[in-house]
Design a protein around this nucleic acid. Structure first.
Lengths: 340, 340
DNA sequence: TCTGGCACTCTGTCCGCGCGAGTGCCAGCG
DNA sequence: CGCTGGCACTCGCGCGGACAGAGTGCCAGA
């Protein structure tokens, strides 16, 4: 129907204007700024309907209208096209990520880049251990009965653990152990690695049994602990600018960001096959984020996502632009990781 | 003189009251809350002198007095005793830092702990590479002409770099290389390591020359780059609480924190032999920090500081308590690092 | 079904005023 | 010589009323 169509145009216009001005938008201003071809009075009627349907609301009688979470949702789902990035922005991405020396460098550059492009808080998850593969396992003797186990994954992530050995170890044991471990685990998916420990234990020469048991335990612990996934956060300075959107409640938001677990859960739910995921306001389960939106996507070279990245900002954000930025950055990061 | 002595008492009382109430403190309130043995009128005279000397100021005529940077400085230098931590706090430190699995874990626990104890933003520097020693160098072949060089220091820090080789490499070369590198560098201070490269190059077997040249270059680059020192920051949520102290200018402070270089410079100037360093307001060269104070100290097991840690907060902070917390945490971190 | 007009409602802002806290100064006292 | 109580003065803050402006809902007419 023509009416429904126009009503959606009105909603779109409201979202766009509200996002750019941060003022509740009235019927008159809408008619002026957008070529809707109808008078303010007509728009008022449409607005009344939109309000009844729950897409917009007025902060108080006789102020303009403001989109609700539901309104933003409709906007994101049906009323916006992802805005392509400018050439300059694409260049900036390349320039920014080039020259990174290691994984941490890549990720911290990424987070700065994303924060700069979107003017929001950016979050990047370290490549999940479970979806990586073993590139190399290194054993370093620290003391007579103390070994340092270093795990290097194909994504460049490095994890290290101290292992207290039940027996003294000599140099030859270390070399043998190193060879044995790499022979067994090199190339294996970390998700499968835990399963390989019993085999290894069985086939190992007797003199190394107890040692391997200790190491295996630490290894499994390292891999299975799922909470261990790390996070890089940046651009919190952008929160200060949009402080108006979080009346007084900036603190819980900052707390939630430091409480990495909360954000991690949001960012890591990205198994939807490469689509950018948007969570708006109350859609975020956590209370501190009920006034915020999260835009996230998985990154990774191959078929499966290695981890997630995204941004956190006020519900009143420029979704098309930010979604484009998040997607583009994720692609580049995937490429860079594939190369290294 | 008795007069001077009492004036200092007055200054101390002003600082204490102002820190705890955040209200400019007047002569009457001061006489009531502290047993100075004199009347408000006398205190007023003292205040007039203190103001003339630049230790306190009034925000506007007929408000109470507020300490200046100079006033805080005098307070810190001469009027305060470092407050010992409570038993509960000491327990908390131990409990918090126990069970850390690797260096990053230790440092991120430290930063959270410090933020929690002081209610300020906490900053911890990674152990400086230059003051660490090589524990182990690992070489992993990633592709035919591409090696991954992994450096593990005695402080548990791990650095990795990709090396593009000028020639193809086979497995035996890698093993030989690894042995040679460790033989040369293991145990060496990183500060001296760069100087060892030429020797190594000279004594190396001819077939490895070009390879070692490439690796040596990367190694030197990694070590010499001084800007590479990393930082862990936490407790930014505490900034929101004290936002009153940074009228409107919370943003530049957050920016300065993200611009790690700025903070790094402050935190890493800790060569003063273990004393806690306090920089108050304008004493911080950087403009964004001109309304903030930094309390820092070096940590490390042995004679020399491995790195710095500290807190950043409003000039109006509880210096005695915070200095005690910073010092105590630094000691524990030093212990923990020495053990691992 | 859209449009123009009209009355109504509500907020944000500005202004003026009084209150209270705090000061500086002065004269008197030990 | 230093301390004290008293007193007049200053100035910011908060409160209340008035006002302008923006926006709405509704209604009659095209």
């Amino acid at each position: 129907m023509a009416h429904d169509e126009r009503r959606l145009q009105v909603l779109r216009a409201i979202v766009q204007d509200y996002v750019s001005t941060n003022d509740p938008v009235g019927s008159k201003a809408l008619a002026e700024r957008h070529d809707l071809g109808v008078s303010p009075a007509t728009i008022r009627n449409d607005m009344a309907v939109l309000e009844e349907q729950g897409y917009i609301t007025q902060p108080h009688t006789s102020a303009g209208r403001v989109p609700t979470d539901k309104g933003y949702r409709l906007f994101v789902d049906r009323l916006s096209a992802v805005k392509p990035l400018s050439v300059a922005e694409r260049r900036a991405i390349e320039r920014f990520l080039d020259g990174a020396v290691d994984l941490h460098d890549i990720l911290s550059r990424t987070v700065r880049l994303l924060a700069q492009l979107t003017h929001q808080v950016a979050v990047v998850q370290y490549p999940t251990l479970l979806r990586s593969a073993v590139r190399h396992l290194e054993v370093v003797q620290v003391a007579t009965a103390r070994l340092l186990l270093v795990l290097i994954t194909d994504t460049g992530r490095v994890e290290q653990r101290l292992v207290e050995c039940p027996v003294d170890v000599d140099r030859d044991d270390v070399a043998e152990l190193r060879a044995l471990l790499n022979q067994t685990f090199a190339g294996a998916k970390l998700a499968d690695a835990a399963g390989l420990v019993p085999d290894l234990l069985e086939t190992a020469p007797p003199n190394l049994r107890r040692l391997i048991a200790a190491i295996g335990a630490v290894l499994v612990e390292t891999l299975v602990e799922p909470g261990e996934d790390r996070l890089v956060i940046g651009g919190t300075a952008n929160l200060a600018q949009v402080a108006v959107d979080f009346p007084g409640s900036l603190r819980p938001l900052l707390e939630a960001l430091e409480e990495q677990v909360v954000v991690l859960r949001l960012i890591s739910e990205v198994d939807t096959g490469g689509a950018v995921l948007v969570r708006i306001g109350e859609e975020n389960a956590h209370e501190a984020l009920s006034g915020a939106s999260v835009v996230s996507v998985g990154y990774g070279s191959g078929e499966r996502a290695l981890g997630g990245l995204g941004i956190v900002g006020p519900t009143r954000m420029d979704y098309p632009t930010n979604m484009a930025a998040v997607r583009a950055v994720a692609r580049y990061v995937g490429q860079i990781l594939a190369e290294s």
